[in-house]
């Protein structure tokens, strides 16, 4: 899972808790998508995390968590061709999720998660 360490990334938050990292992504991204633990990005990095795993998009940059056993969780951002592909893939996945619910005449879900925490969404 160390392929990330070989990429050109920027650290946005370091040595924090997973919860704080997720909240940072939710508050500092233009779009937020939720995936399951183990979701694979950049071909071979499986995200370690406490569900729901938040992935953020800001422009063409992908914002994500990276957890190291001895150092805690980091929030990293990568802005390159691969991040554009990953953001496109997340958008497509959201569209596929929404389409069936529209067909069943259920209320349409936003393809972009609100910029609040996941916990707050369920309190409403």
């Amino acid at each position: 899972m160390s392929c990330i360490e070989q990429m050109k990334y920027e650290i946005l938050l370091d040595r924090t808790t997973y919860k704080a990292a997720r909240e940072y992504i939710e508050k500092n991204s233009e779009e937020v998508y939720y995936v399951s633990p183990g979701y694979k990005i950049f071909k071979d990095y499986h995200i370690i995390g406490v569900p729901p795993i938040a992935l953020g998009a800001k422009g063409n940059a992908l914002i994500f968590t990276y957890t190291k056993p001895c150092y805690g969780t980091f929030v990293l951002t990568v802005d390159n061709e691969d991040s554009i592909k990953e953001i496109d893939r997340l958008r497509k996945m959201e569209t596929e999720k929404v389409t069936p619910s529209l067909k069943k005449s259920k209320p349409a879900e936003s393809s972009r998660a609100p910029l609040t925490s996941f916990q707050d969404m369920w309190k409403k």
Binding site: K19, T67, G72
Partner: peptide, 15 residues
């Protein structure tokens, strides 16, 4: 013994 250990266990629980 730390948050990262808990995070790894949460992942194992999910997968």
């Amino acid at each position: 013994h730390n948050d990262a250990g808990m995070t790894y266990a949460a992942t194992m629980s999910a997968v």
